[in-house]
Design a protein around this nucleic acid. Structure first.
Lengths: 216, 216
DNA sequence: ATTTAGTTACTGAACGGTCAGTAAGTAAAT
DNA sequence: ATTTACTTACTGACCGTTCAGTAACTAAAT
């Protein structure tokens, strides 16, 4: 114990910095990772804090409770994706088939292969525990996503590309292989050594689906 | 307080009964319900015990630990379903299209609308926490289910009913709308007042899928 | 039949580790 | 010198697990 613990000696760069603006986002990002990895209950706030580069007490300067942090994670990370999808559909000028394919691929690009892929699994797992958040998610993400896809299919039905179908059901069936792949990949990642070929899976889905719905 | 608590007076029926043979199954059933409702961590053994009609201590006469109980729940409830599916495929004599439709409907009959519907959601949610159980589930349920369906599709390809496709991918795509519906219904039950029409969903899936894979 | 000695399924209370939340104190910034 | 972002040390409740004790049952002995 020579002089290590002495604070008297200046010069050593500060042990921590004040970074008010950055903390919120960093904590949410850290929490997202851990909630996805371990689930809500099994995630310890001390671990979230460490991964975010702060200590537990700091979390409570930015979030009221563990539950509030969880809700922030879901609300702040998922909605932007839907907005992008809606923007794509808005600006697209090609056929309904092409747009449907674009949306499927964009979903995978923006969600399936990013850290957001954990959110659907997380919501499924914790839905019963947070009814109010679940309603938010169901309306602002699930239903909104289905409506987006239903609009595309309706376009296709109206212009004669697609058979007349229940557009809402057809929309759900266009999405469900994506959703299930997203969730299953999270859960069974360790069981799929060099995991299953997503590109081929998406191609086959698009192929089968468009054949299935196409007018004969 | 007339004479209720007196033990001196015989005739009052016993406060509890010895029912060794029934306990195991009753505890597993209670645990399944609660694990599905609340997730593994949030499920308290005291609640499991109460629902099973015993006390906490009794659980430890039948299971070594909370984790052991969880594993027993998954292993003992899900495997029989696969066995039934394989039996159906074995004995079936009609076309591949008809068998595929039968399997889809039977899955929903045996899993989707029974208490077993909670298991897939549970496994997705807790997979990361129990790697060894997850491997078991992935091999004995997921992969086995996919192989079953792949066999049916291969039949259809060989006898000319279906287009030549990657049978394993096509199998996954036949199952994924079912799996996703199973999980989503568990999670969003409260958000779907008088929930979505499963019969129509299945019909549309079968229709779109068989049109998609049929030889032109 | 009734007593009695023995077995075991089950209870209930207590223990000890864990962790969300808190508050007093410290150091960075202005 | 003052403010405040952040740390550190602490608390209280919760819950999985344990185990000494008890009540239900069994059958041998009378």
């Amino acid at each position: 114990m020579s002089q290590t613990a002495t604070t008297s000696k200046r010069k050593s760069r500060p042990r921590w910095k004040r970074r008010k603006d950055a903390r919120h986002g960093e904590i949410v990002a850290a929490a997202l990772e851990l909630f996805v990895e371990r689930g809500y209950e099994a995630t310890k706030l001390a671990d979230v804090a460490r991964r975010a580069g702060v200590t537990k007490g700091t979390l409570y300067l930015y979030f009221d409770s563990k539950e509030a942090l969880f809700k922030a994670v879901v609300r702040e990370t998922i909605v932007p994706v839907i907005v992008q999808g809606e923007a794509l559909a808005q600006s697209f000028t090609g056929s309904a088939s092409e747009l449907l394919e674009q949306l499927v691929r964009q979903y995978w690009h923006l969600v399936g292969e990013t850290s957001l892929a954990g959110i659907p699994k997380l919501m499924m797992a914790e839905a019963a525990t947070f009814p109010e958040l679940t309603r938010f998610y169901y309306e602002e993400v699930v239903t909104r996503g289905h409506r987006l896809m239903a609009g595309v299919i309706e376009r296709g039905v109206k212009n004669g590309e697609f058979r007349p179908v229940d557009v809402m059901l057809a929309a759900k069936l266009a999405m469900s292989p994506l959703m299930h792949a997203t969730v299953a990949r999270q859960a069974f990642a360790s069981c799929m050594p060099e995991g299953f070929d997503v590109r081929a899976y998406l191609n086959t889905h698009i192929d089968l689906y468009l054949h299935g719905i196409a007018k004969p």
